[in-house]
Design a protein around this nucleic acid. Structure first.
Lengths: 245, 245
DNA sequence: AAGTGGTCTAGACCACTAG
DNA sequence: TAGTGGTCTAGACCACTTC
């Protein structure tokens, strides 16, 4: 009787780790904890919130608090380098749920002045115009990733890249036709907690970080022709990179 | 007067985003918010905790709440592929603080039964022995990353890999001498909130995710000879990958 | 309607930090 | 020692979900 929020959380954490409470299972609610441990409702609440902020649990208003489930989507950066000595079935986080279909929604195409950092990477003057392609990816109706591409207006003006439908082969095929075929890519990743807006856009539950990826596409000559900023729901993704020494 | 915790947080968030409150600056404390907004202390506290859980602020007991600073370390997975068309100065998150020296601490080398997932990736039988090399990396005295390598005991027994000092060229040079030179690597990354133990080991402040990386080293023939599990303080790292289409 | 979480209050006591 | 954060209580009212 009469424990602290941390102690109650530790007990529940242990029950989750041991498997006594499986993913998706319902945790004892606030009233139950109040009774069992003889604490105030706020204290019980804090115990549960601790698990939520650790990403271990998810709260559903009016329903209960549940052990979080993790069924990742695998994002393989270099799909091209397939088979050939890379073995099979040797991934740490099971391949799982084999390629669920992904829908593209909320596509918007427009033109603006390039943000400072993007302008710098693309080697553009301050305030130069870029074509922006912004979209949201969903799996089973749930948003899992947003992506915003920036391309120099001077380069892509007049091509299908400025249309909603970029045609067969997509943006990169059009860039190739413009004599700016991307052949190398740099991805810079960072993980952090989301802002309020990001939480809403990706419908994140509390305790969920995001992964922010900037992908720069380079031509044979080393010219940067596209910057793509992606924001991933970290509770849903495993990123894979293949590196040749 | 009389706002909610969310509203007070939003106001402070705005002050941070606008730059009125710079990184490292001190936020108004609980008593100040109580006075300014006419709310209870707990409400003021919740407003500040919201910013903390978003990774925007850091609390220092007895001192105050401060706007978080982000000065990343750049981790370039494929260092080998340098220069050559990859351009320079074109990174999104500034290269910064140019390679601060990193110390290796808490090195432990021992042998045990391989964890299930590691055994599977290394293609070992259940319960097969592995040599484990565990270490902690620090920058300016602060832990930023832990790394745990697993190598099949049958392969590395008798080599310097089982010693604390692996000799010139390190583990990979020794593996090459054993006829198991790693030439390809697969990195699988995931980001999530840390467990309590991880928070302590990396001395993470609240609202800080971790990045978990499993790096598998493969020989020319595609044999997995090492699995390295790294855990990074996400508030400190930017990961970079270079991909050839 | 009963049960769940969401939020707030007004007060208490403690531990740590800084001058 | 004054100021800051850390934690807890006992109660209140609301909104949502489930049946």
């Amino acid at each position: 009787m009469a424990e602290t929020a941390r102690e109650i959380a530790e007990e529940l954490r242990e029950r989750i780790r041991s498997g006594a409470l499986r993913p998706g299972a319902r945790l004892p609610g606030e009233p139950a904890l109040v009774k069992e441990h003889g604490v105030a409702k706020e204290t019980a609440r804090r115990a549960l919130m601790l698990l939520v902020s650790e990403g271990l649990a998810v709260r559903r208003k009016g329903s209960g608090t549940y052990v979080r489930e993790f069924q990742p989507i695998r994002r393989v950066a270099n799909k091209r380098l397939s088979a050939e000595g890379w073995g099979a079935g040797q991934s740490i986080w099971s391949a799982d749920v084999g390629d669920r279909p992904m829908q593209v929604t909320d596509l918007r195409v427009y033109e603006t002045a390039a943000p400072d950092d993007v302008a710098r990477v693309l080697g553009l003057d301050d305030g130069a115009e870029v074509v922006v392609r912004d979209r949201l990816f969903k799996v089973e109706g749930e948003p899992v990733q947003s992506a915003t591409s920036y391309l120099p207006s001077d380069l892509v003006r007049g091509s299908a890249i400025t249309q909603e439908d970029t045609g067969p082969g997509g943006t990169y095929a059009r860039l190739a036709e413009l004599g700016a075929k991307p052949v190398r890519f740099v991805e810079e990743l960072r993980s952090r907690m989301p802002s309020r807006e990001e939480t809403e856009r990706l419908r994140l539950s509390e305790g969920t970080p995001v992964v922010e990826i900037y992908r720069t596409a380079l031509t044979e000559e080393g010219r940067a022709v596209e910057v793509n900023r992606m924001l991933l729901d970290a509770s849903v993704y495993v990123m894979e990179y293949r590196i040749t020494g």
